[in-house]
Design a protein around this nucleic acid. Sequence first.
DNA 1: ATCAGAGTTGACCAAGCAGTCAAGATTGAT
DNA 2: ATCAATCTTGACTGCTTGGTCAACTCTGAT
Lengths: 181, 181
Amino acid sequence: MGEMKNTARPASRSDIREENERLILDCAERVFAERGFGGATMQEIADRAGLPKANLHYYFMSKETLYRRVVERIFTIWLQAAEAFETSATPQIALSTYIARKMELSREYRYGSKVWANEVMQGAPIIQDYLEVTLRDWTETRIEVIRSWVAAGQIRPVDPRWLLYMIWATTQHYADFAHQI
Amino acid sequence: MGEMKNTARPASRSDIREENERLILDCAERVFAERGFGGATMQEIADRAGLPKANLHYYFMSKETLYRRVVERIFTIWLQAAEAFETSATPQIALSTYIARKMELSREYRYGSKVWANEVMQGAPIIQDYLEVTLRDWTETRIEVIRSWVAAGQIRPVDPRWLLYMIWATTQHYADFAHQI
DNA sequence: ATCAGAGTTGACCAAGCAGTCAAGATTGAT
DNA sequence: ATCAATCTTGACTGCTTGGTCAACTCTGAT
């Protein structure tokens, strides 16, 4: 009933997959955030999406696959915030826009942020491999930029790694501990 | 074999309970930290303690009971770090000793710290009630102290709540993200 | 020596879990 | 109209889980 000018309609056949995957990912993100990987159940995710459980397994092979997709999604959004490092003229601008953007994202993708923080806190037991490649490359690039700033005398000499973690930790908290703060 | 001058021996009958409870709590703390509440299993805790699972249930009624005891234990240790607020002469000393002590504890009780952070991050689903009484009282007292400092012109005027959370968040991170940092 | 109460434990159970499957519904292309 | 591919779903399975229980051992007091 009422399928006319509504925003989200069935859409052309090929879109149905994309649409359902997004719905499932959204719900999964919330459930994983609230219950952790071990505590989350496929049934609860299915219920929240209003789909039968078997349907989840049609789109995602396993619980772990679904979890990985959730983490990878939030992670790529994360990375986009780091573009400031390349596009900014000065370190001051780069850092402040990066921090601002990241905090914005932490609020916007509150649940994803939780899932991510959780995973990292427990030593990234599930996405270890993914991290070791992608994150290391990313970090190395960033470190090079910071190092060049130091060399050019644009900022005080600090351990680039330390600076990055410091920024990351601070911004992260605004999202993670929202409940308390 | 070899039960003589070893450090930890069976001990007098009444100590056996205390000793086993501590052993179980220690192991539970690690497992809960590594797997989360949902992901942890009584079996793994039992294995790590070298006891049959049924024995855990002799000392702790349920998984939830055990979890609560773990959280409450780390929490009371946490609170002790805050004594600095009462015993210190000036705000500067109070804050710096508090921070120092808390970071020390974060390192010492690394696993408990993780469990605690996890619980809080997920909105304290299990220990809500406990928090609402104990933590609120604690926070209120601390806020009063900070407020009196502001009134006496000893520190710049800040929202006491904000200052507390800021300190808490910062120290917390050193423990939580040890894996990355 | 004996005995009550604390501590120990293997075997067991019902519930809930991730994952499977085969039968059916829907749809776009012909 | 028909047909193949995509999508949907209730019913199922094998396994793991938290929790129970009754039989057992151990120990300190009498």
